[in-house]
Computed example of a mutant assay.
Amino acid sequence: MENTPLYSIPAKYRKIENLHIVFWLIKDMCWAMLWKPLGLVMIVPTVSVAVLITWQTRKLKAELYHNLAVLFWIIANCYWMVTEFLALPDETRYYAAVPFSIGIVIIAAYYIRVLPAEKTEAMANAG
């Protein structure tokens, strides 16, 4: 048997994450089907649950960084959808790159700075 540590998440958090997937899928289906009113309404629960998930996992650095990146991904995704629904000029959708980029920076910060520091600390505490 492996000595790999188990990672578990509380059931109530898992249910919220699963609900978030449902909201996100409905929002994106509305986008694809051009169901504008429902798509715009679905922004609120999709972003709200992403914020809730991020808040709930704030004490676990790996989860916090990844959930922040997902939150910015959803914000970018919602903005892009709105630009298409409102028939804004094509150039305006490129501003979605801002929150997408913030998400990339957050993930990069985690893997370049936070994770190596945690590994170094764990090795120091083990030895």
Rank of each mutant, 00 (worst) to 15 (best):
K61V: 11
A109F: 14
V82H: 12
I21L: 15
E118C: 00
K36T: 15
G39C: 03
T120G: 02
N67C: 06
I102W: 07
T4N: 07
V47A: 06
E2I: 06
I9H: 00
I106M: 03
V49W: 01
P45H: 14
V47I: 15
A50D: 04
Y95E: 05
A117E: 08
L52H: 10
E84G: 08
L71E: 14
I43S: 05
P37W: 02
L68D: 00
S8N: 06
A76R: 11
Y7W: 06
L71Y: 15
A76L: 10
C78I: 00
I21K: 14
M42W: 02
E91L: 09
I21R: 13
A108L: 00
M29W: 12
P45S: 15
A96C: 09
T83P: 03
A117V: 04
A11C: 00
L25D: 04
K27M: 15
L40I: 08
L38V: 03
M123T: 01
K119I: 14
A11G: 03
D90N: 15
L6F: 02
A76T: 11
I75E: 04
V47R: 08
E17P: 02
A97G: 09
T57Q: 01
L40Q: 04
V105W: 13
L52D: 05
L38S: 02
L19T: 13
L34D: 10
Y95G: 01
K119M: 13
F85N: 03
M123V: 01
E17Y: 08
Y111I: 10
V44R: 00
L19P: 04
W55S: 03
P116H: 06
K27E: 14
V82Q: 12
K119F: 13
